[in-house]
Amino acid sequence: MSSEQPYISSIQLPNNGEVFRNLKRAKRFAIDIGGSLTKIAYYSTVSYRKVSYNSEQGTNDEEAGDIHLYESSELERLHFVKFETKYIEQCLDFVQKHLVNCKDSIIGKSIKATGGGAYKYAELITKKLGFIVEKEDEICCLIKGCNFLLRNIPDEQFVYCKHEDPEYRFVNSEPSIFPYLLVNIGSGVSILKVESEDKYERIGGTSMGGGTFWGLGCLLTKAKGFDDLLQLASEGDHRNVDLLVKDIYGNLTNKS
């Protein structure tokens, strides 16, 4: 019997190919337009019926068919979509097509936008979707989103100890999630020290990040997109290219 404790699954993504799920019941949109990838988040409502039974009426199957009661309820569901920024116009066309009959349900008739593309593509978004673009500070959005995950999603915070078994130990974020280091890997990399809801500072970073990985990957392989590169990376072995200790000292072994 395994002694390892199964961890709670935090966020489940759909396995099917339907990217913009339940788009016609969307209530609020937010978009992060980066140099390489664009990310869209939106929440929608999902209606369902729940069967309830009245145990005080009827005992046989024939009577039971008459005492089924249905309760209608509505759930809120959060959706995430990502795609290459160069396809943003086609993506907005798709969203616009599916929002033709439900624009009145969008809260505030606006879309929250962040990232460098929030300025570059603001006019295009308004033209395609007819929404007011409300620009938000990228770092503030990043920290608020991270705080939300740490407080609401199980097993999002852990301590790493290389020589322990297991190496990763998940911890409870209560009573406070602060302080923590936030490493944001986008086209470049930024390292932020977050001390409270509104106190943080950038303590490091590099211009080498996803953009460098993407550019070199396309030059060195036949990959045609970011997802293709991620798939190739998952199948590779870093020891074939990384400088290892044995490359410096030789492959030392104990000899009797």
Results as ranks from 00 to 15, higher is better:
residue 68 H to N: 08
residue 20 F to D: 11
residue 50 K to I: 14
residue 79 H to W: 08
residue 47 S to A: 15
residue 173 S to E: 04
residue 109 K to G: 02
residue 38 T to E: 05
residue 210 G to P: 03
residue 123 E to Q: 13
residue 133 V to G: 07
residue 125 I to L: 03
residue 114 T to E: 13
residue 107 I to D: 11
residue 238 H to P: 00
residue 225 G to A: 10
residue 2 S to G: 01
residue 59 T to M: 10
residue 230 L to W: 06
residue 106 I to K: 01
residue 76 E to D: 03
residue 113 A to F: 07
residue 211 G to M: 07
residue 189 V to I: 14
residue 51 V to E: 15
residue 226 F to E: 06
residue 177 I to K: 01
residue 170 F to E: 12
residue 212 T to E: 14
residue 183 V to P: 05
residue 43 Y to F: 15
residue 210 G to T: 02
residue 19 V to F: 01
residue 217 G to A: 05
residue 168 Y to R: 12
residue 156 E to R: 01
residue 84 E to Y: 00
residue 243 L to M: 15
residue 89 E to R: 02
residue 65 G to T: 05
residue 242 D to Y: 15
residue 55 S to D: 14
residue 153 I to A: 02
residue 1 M to S: 09
residue 184 N to A: 11
residue 175 P to G: 06
residue 88 I to T: 08
residue 13 L to T: 07
residue 2 S to Y: 12
residue 129 L to A: 06
residue 36 S to C: 13
residue 85 T to A: 07
residue 33 I to F: 05
residue 178 F to N: 12
residue 35 G to C: 12
residue 113 A to M: 10
residue 9 S to Q: 08
residue 118 A to R: 13
residue 235 E to I: 02
residue 69 L to H: 10
residue 103 K to P: 00
residue 122 A to M: 06
residue 220 L to R: 03
residue 84 E to L: 00
residue 111 I to Y: 09
residue 233 A to E: 07
residue 243 L to H: 07
residue 28 R to K: 11
residue 78 L to G: 02
residue 1 M to T: 10
residue 235 E to W: 13
residue 128 K to V: 05
residue 246 K to Q: 10
residue 161 C to R: 13
residue 175 P to S: 05
residue 57 Q to H: 13
